[in-house]
């Protein structure tokens, strides 16, 4: 159970949000500059909130009152970065194993772990890429490696920052199904940030709509016909390659169960 209330002052605007969330995939949906990445960074411990509290199950990660701020390395929160942040000087294998304590046994399945290194790589279909460097991978492959790397350390929560934005439409669909499947297998909460309507439809169990750092009421949040522009004057909603224009449509309801059939767990 994630229980977080985060307040973060940024130059220009501030993020102020309460998140209570138990299982499945929570989608943070909003335009660029609405504070989505800031929220993820605060959860992961890479940025320090100005005020608030972050609890995951019984662990306190951050508490302004008690002056607690657990460093990122002790939080066990997986983070798949927008540009994947794969280590360019390490092979896929070394990237994936980076979070595991070094030693001869590090590929062995540990007690309490869901999957061994081999099983994870096989599930994500990246076994054959082990010896490559990140620069030799396609977008979809990088995505899978990044996912494997953060799953390897058995996180209690997985954060994904626009995980599919740099991937072309066909592979994106494939990965959406896989992500959903992984979430069901791993049974840890995922928080996924996106500004793509279709991605939200395909993945979300719950949605939080963000605008200028605040959660906005979904019921009256419809997109005006013809679209509008975001804070930097770019077209909003954004039209992604391989996606039809979203203008004129209505954002779907808060709990999204109908959009995609659940993928059965193996």
């Amino acid at each position: 159970m994630l229980n977080a209330s985060i307040r973060k002052e940024l130059p220009g605007f501030s993020v102020d949000i309460d998140l209570r969330f138990d299982r499945g995939i929570l989608v943070l949906f909003g335009p660029s500059g609405s504070g989505k990445s800031t929220i993820l960074n605060c959860l992961a411990g890479l940025q320090k909130p100005t005020a608030g509290r972050i609890l995951l199950d019984s662990r306190v990660f951050f508490c302004k009152q008690q002056n607690i701020n657990v460093p990122a390395r002790q939080r066990r929160i997986g983070y798949v970065f927008q540009d994947y942040a794969l280590f360019p000087h390490l092979t896929v294998k070394d990237n994936v194993l980076f979070g595991l304590a070094p030693g001869p046994d590090r590929c062995k399945k540990r007690r309490g772990h869901r999957m061994s290194v081999r099983e994870t790589l096989e599930m994500l279909k990246i076994m054959h890429l082990q010896a490559r460097y990140p620069a030799q991978l396609s977008g979809g492959e990088k995505q899978r490696v990044a996912l494997a790397r953060s799953l390897m350390m058995e996180p209690d929560l997985l954060l994904l920052d626009e995980p599919l934005s740099a991937i072309d439409a066909q592979i994106r669909r494939e990965l959406q199904i896989e992500l959903k499947k992984i979430q069901r297998t791993w049974e840890i909460p995922f928080i996924l940030v996106t500004h793509s309507h279709k991605e939200m439809d395909a993945l979300a169990d719950e949605v939080v709509f963000l605008k200028d750092g605040q959660a906005v009421d979904t019921a009256d949040w419809t997109l005006p016909a013809g679209g509008t522009t975001d804070r930097w004057g770019r077209a909003w909603p954004p039209v992604l390659p391989g996606e039809d224009s979203l203008t004129g449509s209505t954002i779907h309801g808060f709990r999204n169960t109908a959009a995609m059939p659940d993928v059965p767990v193996k």
Partner: peptide, 15 residues
């Protein structure tokens, strides 16, 4: 050096 790589290493439990 890309700062997000250092951040990634921190989230993976590195001191």
């Amino acid at each position: 050096v890309d700062m997000s790589l250092e951040q990634a290493a921190r989230t993976l439990g590195s001191s």
